[in-house]
Design a protein around this nucleic acid. Structure first.
Length: 652
DNA sequence: AACTAACGCGCC
DNA sequence: AAAGGGCGCGTTAGTT
């Protein structure tokens, strides 16, 4: 039995745990201690070989508000103090020492408040694992029927004490918390939200013990899932802070070259302030104006553009790209090109770079669990929306490479594993799931197979998808049954959950009061509107079970990969591979060239580990498309390999 | 002038 | 007949 993810023993099958737990914990304790004294890189299989049932050592951490010191409080796994708290003058050094000797799980109020300050002062090996009380709290609250309550240590402490949750935390929740984040400068500890006179370490220890108790009180299999999810979410906190700290390699030179090629030379500051466009954009604007009758036209104004098209005899509902592509008028392609370039200029041009790239690294902030499905969000710089056309600017350092890997066709594979649908499992077994689906049920038409399955996962019923759904229902009844059951649950006001037990939000109060409807602008609640709101929620819950379970898997993936990367012995110059990008189902590792093979193997092993942890003994595989490249853009085939023929395994 | 809503599009 | 999930961010257009 393997122990992965740097995780709680409870992540294992209960049967296995029971058989191992019974005999002499003391002996196991000694065994563990002696093993842990070995240098980290000499015990790369530490977690695999760790005996189950041995109490995990935890240490609560309270960093001083200012200065390098802090307090450490050893805890038992159930959260009860195991020793007296200790004040240390150099918190990072003290933690590094204990990390090496004991490999504890660090318990703190919020990784985002503590870890960024520690990172520059920690050795390259960093910390192994943690329990982030602020990330675990909402996972538990949802299971207690208190979805969306404030999650910070201050709020959790108030609930624990039976005190009213502070008003600023109760109002607007996310807003209050993010405002606090903004105004408290960079890394103000979350404990500032405790009431006056409350010892932050006392509150943390109590809240953590209570969280452990609440986890233990959950029924199986929810308990196992939520413990695993809590550990994975906490690991995500570590990864997120490290992604920001290490940064994504970004070549100003290449970015400049790309921008010049697309837009022309950069406008001066004064020109830009005066609203001047870069040369190629300005030229396009003139061309477009001429093509639309020659009157003054702001191509950025949808209203003006629509009117101009109307004067040309072209009737358009909006200026959306997919509509413009169908328009047979010389202005249409010009406008499409203008919009494409204009967006690059505005969203990822020189101004963006000035704001977000420093010292050859793009350092966005990542928001763990920022999406209700458990996907991450980002803050600043549009980290999760880097246009493909600019990915050439992500360039490895000299002597380094990027190991770019994405989980191909992740969501349909997740549906496959969730539903255990034999037909869908067979379709995905050979590699290209959509091709297998096409061969099985769509007469070899891969495009239709893909369209149908995506429609089933998103709740689409219109257009050409309708008939495809009928085929899917007949041939893949278990898979379709699962998503349709999720939709029905949502439509009737219920909640659904991910594989590991992340719950979707309940319907809003207004939705419920209105009898599953939203008031129409006129205040009427017609039958149509009632049905429309219900169906909308059905589409949400239908997709949630898949998207959130995919997020479970991805979180397990990065947690495993982080641990495995840490176990790779550094190069002779001490250089280590670092995870530098994570986007839903895709990762980028910046690695010294000689280590790239080991990194690629770690990626594959992590994907399989995530499969096992999240989906148990499913026959479904989650293959990673892995490319070792100098530039991110060279790892084409990212996302879904659909239309990009067979271009596998190049780049090695 | 400052704010908000709606839109549109980048990514998955 | 039709009614595709989740985000961040920049724009215009409308409001205060």
């Amino acid at each position: 039995m393997t122990q992965r993810l740097g995780d709680t023993p409870s992540a294992h099958h209960p049967s296995t745990r029971r058989t191992r737990t019974a005999p002499e914990p003391v002996c196991q304790w000694r065994l563990l201690r002696s093993r842990q004294r070995e240098p980290r890189h000499d015990r790369s299989d530490r977690d695999d070989s760790r005996d189950e049932g041995v109490a995990e050592q935890r240490i609560a951490v309270d960093a001083d508000q200012d200065g390098p010191g802090g307090r450490l409080q050893p805890l038992r796994e159930d959260g009860q103090p195991a020793d007296r708290p200790e004040r240390v003058r150099d918190l990072a050094a003290a933690m590094a020492e204990r990390e090496y000797a004991q490999h504890p799980r660090w318990v703190w109020a919020a990784t985002e408040d503590v870890y960024p300050r520690l990172l520059p002062r920690l050795p390259e090996s960093r910390l192994g694992r943690c329990h982030d009380a602020k990330l675990v709290e909402p996972l538990l609250l949802a299971h207690e029927g208190r979805y969306g309550e404030p999650r910070s240590l201050g709020a959790a402490w108030a609930r624990l004490q039976g005190l009213p949750v502070p008003e600023d935390l109760r109002l607007g929740l996310a807003e209050a918390e993010s405002d606090a984040h903004a105004q408290d400068a960079l890394f103000a500890p979350d404990r500032s939200r405790l009431g006056p006179g409350v010892d932050p370490l006392t509150a943390l220890v109590a809240v953590h013990a209570e969280q452990q108790r609440r986890l233990a009180a959950l029924p199986e299999p929810t308990r196992r899932g939520l413990r695993l999810l809590s550990a994975a979410e906490s690991a995500g906190g570590l990864v997120a802070a490290e992604l920001t700290y290490d940064g994504l390699p970004w070549s100003t030179e290449v970015h400049d070259a790309l921008l010049e090629e697309l837009l022309g030379s950069r406008p001066t500051t004064a020109q830009a302030a005066g609203g001047a466009r870069p040369p190629k954009l300005a030229a396009l604007a003139v061309e477009l104006q001429d093509a639309l009758g020659g009157r003054p036209l702001n191509p950025d104004s949808p209203g003006q553009v629509l009117r101009a098209f109307a004067e040309q005899g072209v009737s358009l509902q909006s200026t959306r790209n997919y509509l413009l592509r169908q328009v047979d008028h010389p202005a249409a392609p010009l406008l499409l090109r203008y919009k494409e370039l204009s967006r690059i200029y505005a969203a990822h041009g020189w101004a963006w770079r000035d704001a977000w790239v420093r010292g050859g690294r793009f350092r966005p902030e990542y928001v763990v669990g920022g999406v209700v499905s458990g996907r991450w969000a980002s803050r600043g710089g549009g980290a999760l929306q880097i246009p493909r056309i600019l990915r050439g600017a992500v360039v490895a350092d000299p002597g380094w490479r990027l190991v770019v890997a994405d989980a191909g066709q992740l969501e349909p594979r997740v549906l496959s594993a969730l539903s255990n649908d034999p037909g869908l499992i067979r379709a995905g077994a050979a590699g290209d799931l959509y091709a297998g689906l096409a061969a099985d049920a769509f007469g070899g038409d891969r495009a239709r197979a893909k369209l149908g399955l995506l429609g089933a996962m998103y709740g689409q019923t219109s257009g050409e998808v309708g008939p495809l759904l009928a085929v899917l229902r007949r041939r893949f009844p278990q898979a379709m049954g699962l998503v349709e059951a999720a939709a029905r649950t949502g439509e009737s006001g219920g909640v659904v959950e991910s594989r590991l037990g992340r719950l979707c939000p309940p319907p809003s109060a207004s939705w419920q009061e209105a009898g599953f409807a939203e008031p129409s602008p006129s205040g009427e609640l017609g039958e149509d509107r009632t049905g429309s709101a219900a169906r909308s929620r059905g589409r949400f819950t239908r997709n949630f079970v898949i998207q959130a379970s995919a997020a479970d898997w991805a979180l397990a993936l990065i947690a495993a990969l982080r641990r495995r990367l840490g176990e790779i012995p550094p190069g002779p110059d001490g250089a280590r591979p670092r995870l530098v990008f994570f986007q839903h189902d895709e990762i980028v590792v910046h690695s010294p060239l000689p280590l790239t093979g080991t990194v690629a193997a770690a990626v594959a092993a992590s994907a399989d580990e995530a499969r096992r942890l999240v989906f148990g003994d499913t026959p479904v595989r989650f293959p990673m498309d892995t490319h070792i490249v100098e530039r991110y853009a060279d790892a084409k085939d990212g996302g879904d390999a659909q239309d990009a023929e067979a271009d596998e395994d190049e780049g090695y």
